[in-house]
Amino acid sequence: MRSGSNLERVLESGTFAVTAEIAPPKSTSTEGLRKKVQALKGCAEAFNLTDNQTAIVRLSSMASSVACLQEGAEPVMQMTCRDRNRIAMQSDLLGAASLGIRNVLCLSGDHQTFGNQKEARNVYDIDPVQQLMVFRQMRDQGQVWGGDTIEERPKVYLGAAANPFADPFEYRVARLAKKVKAGADFVQTQAIFDLDRFERFMTEVRARRLDEQVHILAGVVPLKSANAARYMKTKVSGMSVPDEVVVRMKSASDPKKEGIRICVETIDHLKNIPGVHGVHIMAIGWEEMVPTIAEQSGLLPRPCIP
């Protein structure tokens, strides 16, 4: 075991895994976050605590991860390349491991101009592929970048993001291969609505036998309204939402129910795609629906793997 994390144990056992996203609060109080963790605990192997997602200042992913741990659930700490140079990243990795965090997701991060700190200077000292290289060296060689020895290695399960819907499409699997080569143990994908394109992506993933080297968790987002569907289709770059999804949401008498139904159907489909080892549920601002989605998808109860 690389980290001994619950997520690693479940994935390594060959069980179809579940992760879910929880947004940290814009607050110092972790009360609401803790309530969410309590409500969602048991529905997923681990919970992603986002790192100032969409470049909006929130409670840090590390502090949120600790709160999650204290509530008895396993966190996936997210860490973007936007806000930290390699010194801060390595220091934060040691810090996270010292606090008991066992999963870390490496990301480029949403550009600062999307958030509430548009005038900020970004860092991008290293990119996510390099971040994985650095973290893997720390864990497996017990060395910080440059070679200095770490007395106690950070035992972390390393994650990366993949977006099968961004362009150039022909390069997306090669890019995933680079992340795998750099050290990704698991991958969480962008939200999947366009199953055709995702199937094509997975065919190529299998052709390269990447599914044997990395655990792919397919991302899903339950839609709350037709507007949300339209917004994702037109405003979020790197997203593909087929027209039929928008139409279904628009004509639904109960759009929220329809959104959950689409999400559950998507998960059912994803379960049958060879090489998909789990799902990652991103119920943005709607986390309370995660248990329902997991339940209706037949993903409960979650296994207990020692």
């Binding site: 991008y124 890019r175 750099a182 770059s237 790197g238």
Partner: peptide, 14 residues
Amino acid sequence: SKSMLNGPCGGSQN
């Protein structure tokens, strides 16, 4: 925009 050295981020479209 992110000075990435190992390929495009997930926001590249068209």
